[in-house]
Nucleic acid binder design. Structure first.
Lengths: 245, 245
DNA sequence: TCCGAAAGTTGAACACGTTCAAATCGGAGC
DNA sequence: GCTCCGATTTGAACGTGTTCAACTTTCGGA
C-alpha cells in the first residue's frame, strides 16, 4: 500500500532553503519536525479523531497557532503519517525487486509487505481512506498534488515488470505497471474494510489473485485472447490515457 | 448509482409505530420529515460543509437539539439525501428493465440513469464518498447497516440478468448481479473524480465498458475461456462469499 | 377530569478545528 | 551595539458539530 499522497511539501512557509529531502536544520524546520513527530506518534496511539490539534501542539511543545503556520489543516498531517509508512514500504520492497524470483512471487511479496507495514494502523487507515477518497483533497490518489507519489508507486511496478521475463502482450506490458497500481488501490480498499482478525481475508485474496493475474498476463500473448486484451487496453486508454502518465 | 446506504432508519426514537415506508402522521414523524426536507434542499444548494446543522434546524423551524433527537449526526442526514436519489434512480430504472432491448443496452441505460440522477450533485457526491468510504460508517456500501440497500441495488441487476437470454457460463450468471454492482461502485468512484465538463469521460467509459462486459460475458461459455472464468469466480468466492449474499 | 409517564423540544454549554492580530525572535546591515 | 524587517510564535476568539439537563406537550388510563 503505497501510493496516495504527494511526496514533498505539506509546509506553508515560503521555503527559503532548497526543496530537498536533506534535513534543514533551521529553527523552522526543527519545529516542523517536532510537530510531525508528535502527530505521527499520537495518530498511531489514539487514532485520527481522538488526537486533537491542541494535543499535537502541546506534545510538540508549541502553540496551536504555530502548528497551523506549518500545516494548513489537520488533514495535511495525516499525509505526513502516510509518507512515513510509504517510506518504510519502499525500503522493504527494495530487496524484493532485486531478488530473482518469479513475477508472481515478487508481486505477492510487494503487496504483502504493504499490508504488513499498515497492519498496526488498520483503524487509522479507515479514517485515512475517508480523507483520501474525497476528490478535492491533496491526498486523493487521483489528485495532481499526488502525481509524484503516484509515479513513485507505479515506478515500483515498472521495475517489477521491466525485470520480468514472462512473455506477454507488448501493449499490455506497457500498461501493466499502472494496472498493478490500480489493483493495489483496490486491495487497499478491500483491506481497510476487512474485519477478519489480522485481515486474514485480504491475505487470502492476495494468495489467490496474484497467481490469477500471472495467468492472465501469460494468456495475453495467446491469439485467442487477443480481442480480450486489445479491447481491455482500449478501455483503459479511455479510462486513463497513457499520455497522462 | 444506487447502492450505498441502509434503506429504513436514520431515526433514533424508539419507533412506536410500524416500521414501514407509509407516512407516519404523528407529530414526531412530521418534525423528522421537515428536518430531512430542509437538509436535502440545503445540501443540494450549498453543499455538505457549508450547510450547518444550525441552518438546517432553523430552516426546518426547530432547535438544533431537536435535530439531534432524530438524527445521531450530520452524517446521518446525508444518507437521507442519498436515499432520495436512490428512489429516483429506482423509478427511472423500472421502465428500462421492462423494455425488451439487449443486455448491454439495458445495462448501459441503467448506469447512465444513475449518472443523470446524481449529475446535479457532483460536488456534493465528492464529500459523500468520503463519508461512505470509512469502514465504520453506516453509509459504507460494505457495512451491515446497508445490507438492505445493497440487496436492493443488486436486485436491479438480478432482474436484468434473469431477464436476459444471452448465453453465458451458468456459474457466472449466478454471480453476475454482484459483479455488476461492484462494477457500478467502481464507476461511481470514477465519476466522482471525473473533472471533465459534464463528466463526459465517465459517459465515454460506459459506452466502451458495457459492450466489453457484454463481450466478456458471452465469451464465458466458450471452452477456451473456461479456466479464466472458473478461476475468476473462485477468486470472487474468496473476495465475497456467495453465502454472504 | 386529572395524573403521570413517555415523547418531543429547547438553548446553553462543550470540545474541537481553524483564524488572526499582535508579540517575539534572530540576524543582516550600519 | 543598534535598528529594522521578515520569520516565527502566541493565545484569544470564532464557527462548527455535538451533548445534555431541564422544560413542555401529548395521551392513555384511573
Amino acid at each position: 500500500m503505497g501510493s496516495v499522497t504527494h511526496t514533498d511539501n505539506g509546509s506553508s512557509p515560503a521555503a527559503p532553503a532548497a526543496r530537498g529531502r536533506a534535513a534543514d536544520t533551521s529553527r523552522g524546520e526543527q519545529t516542523r519536525q517536532a510537530i510531525v513527530t508528535s502527530a505521527i506518534r499520537l495518530f498511531g496511539e489514539a487514532g485520527y479523531e481522538k488526537t486533537t490539534m491542541r494535543a499535537i501542539a502541546a506534545d510538540a511543545g508549541v502553540s496551536v497557532g504555530n502548528a497551523y503556520y506549518y500545516f494548513p489543516a489537520k488533514e495535511a498531517l495525516v499525509s505526513e503519517f502516510y509518507l512515513e509508512l510509504q517510506r518504510e514500504h519502499l525500503a522493504r520492497v527494495e530487496p524484493i525487486l532485486s531478488s530473482g524470483t518469479s513475477f508472481g512471487d515478487r508481486l505477492a511479496a510487494i503487496l504483502r509487505e504493504g499490508i504488513e507495514v499498515w497492519a498496526p494502523h488498520h483503524a487509522f487507515a479507515g479514517r485515512f481512506i475517508g480523507i483520501a477518497a474525497v476528490p478535492g483533497s491533496p491526498v486523493s490518489p487521483f489528485s495532481t498534488e499526488s502525481t509524484q507519489a503516484r509515479e513513485l508507486a507505479t515506478s515500483i511496478f515498472h521495475r517489477l515488470v521491466d525485470s520480468t521475463e514472462t512473455k506477454m502482450d507488448p501493449q499490455l506490458r506497457a500498461r501493466l505497471p499502472q494496472l498493478l497500481w490500480l489493483a493495489q488501490l483496490g486491495l487497499v480498499v478491500y483491506w481497510v474494510h476487512d474485519t477478519t482478525p489480522g485481515q486474514r481475508r485480504t491475505r487470502a485474496v492476495v494468495d489467490l489473485a496474484v497467481p490469477y493475474l500471472e495467468y492472465l498476463v501469460g494468456a495475453s500473448r495467446m491469439k485467442i485472447f487477443k480481442p480480450l486484451t486489445t479491447r481491455g487496453l482500449a478501455l483503459l486508454e479511455t479510462l486513463w490515457p497513457h499520455a497522462a502518465r
